[in-house]
C-alpha cells in the first residue's frame, strides 16, 4: 500500500520535473552571472581558479555558512554521542596490534598525505582543489593512522583548539575587511599580487588555509568520536 502511494508520488514528481526541464536545455545554458565570473574573476579577486574565486571571493559568505554547518554537525555528533555515554561504564576492548608492515607503512605515508593535503589547500586559488578538499585529505591521513596504528590517538584539546582558532581566523579576516578594506564584510584588503603565483589573490589563500585546517581537524574529531564509540 505504502509503496504504491510512494510510486504514484514519484511519478507525479518525475512528470513535473520533465515538464520544467524542457525549458532548460542541457549543455547550452549559460548564465550572465557565470559569464561575468569567468570574464572578470581574475581581475576582481586575483585567483586563477574561477571556482575558488566564486567560493571564497564572490560567495565567501556562503562558505562561512558552510564551514559553520560542518562545525555544527561535528559538535552535534559529539553531543549526541556524549549524552548517551555518560551513564555507561567504560569497558576497554583489547585491540589486536597491527602487523609490522601495516604499522610502518602507515607511519611512512602519514606525513606524505599531510603534505599533499596542505599542498591542495595552499594552492586552492591556482589549481583544482581548495580548503575543503585539502581538509578531507588531511582527515584521511588521521583515519589511516587510527585504522593502521590502532593505539595512536590525537589529543582532543589540540584538535578542538585548531578548529576554534582557524574558525576565528576566518571571521576575523572578514571583520578586518569590514574595518579597513572598503567597509564590506569579507572584502579583500590585501594586494592581489601577480596572477598565477603563490602569493596572490589577497585574502583567498589565508581563508583557504584556515578552512583546510578547520575541516581537517573537524573531520578528525568526528572520526575520533566515532571510533571512541566503537570501543
Amino acid at each position: 500500500m505504502r509503496s504504491v502511494f510512494s510510486l504514484i508520488l514519484l511519478v507525479v514528481i518525475g512528470a513535473g520535473v520533465v515538464f520544467t526541464l524542457s525549458s532548460i536545455p542541457f549543455g547550452s545554458t549559460s548564465s550572465d552571472v557565470g559569464e561575468y565570473y569567468i570574464d572578470s574573476g581574475r581581475a576582481d579577486t586575483g585567483a586563477t581558479n574561477i571556482v575558488t574565486s566564486v567560493v571564497v571571493g564572490y560567495r565567501a559568505f556562503d562558505t562561512l555558512g558552510e564551514v559553520t554547518v560542518l562545525f555544527v554537525a561535528a559538535i552535534g555528533l559529539g553531543a549526541i554521542l556524549a549524552a548517551g555515554r555518560e551513564n555507561e561504564e567504560k569497558k576497554k576492548a583489547e585491540w589486536e596490534p597491527a602487523s609490522l608492515v601495516l604499522y610502518t607503512g602507515c607511519r611512512f605515508l602519514f606525513p606524505l598525505i599531510l603534505l599533499f593535503g596542505a599542498y591542495v589547500f595552499i594552492h586552492g586559488h591556482l589549481t583544482p582543489g581548495g580548503g575543503f578538499q585539502g581538509g578531507a585529505i588531511i582527515a584521511s591521513a588521521f583515519l589511516m593512522v587510527y585504522l593502521g596504528c590502532r593505539k595512536k590517538r590525537i589529543s582532543k584539546t589540540w584538535a578542538r583548539n585548531t578548529e576554534s582558532i582557524s574558525g576565528l581566523v576566518f571571521v576575523v579576516t572578514g571583520l578586518t575587511g569590514l574595518a579597513v578594506g572598503g567597509h564590506y564584510f569579507l572584502s579583500n584588503f590585501l594586494p592581489e599580487g601577480t596572477l598565477n603565483t603563490l602569493f596572490s589573490a589577497g585574502i583567498i589563500p589565508i581563508i583557504y588555509i584556515a578552512i583546510g585546517l578547520k575541516v581537517g581537524s573537524e573531520l578528525t574529531g568526528v572520526i575520533d568520536d566515532l571510533i571512541e564509540e566503537s570501543e
Partner: peptide
Amino acid sequence: IGYLRNGTAPIFSSP
C-alpha cells in the same frame, strides 16, 4: 545545469 557542451573547467592554469 551549469554544463556547456565541450566546455572545460573554469581554471586559468597558465596565462
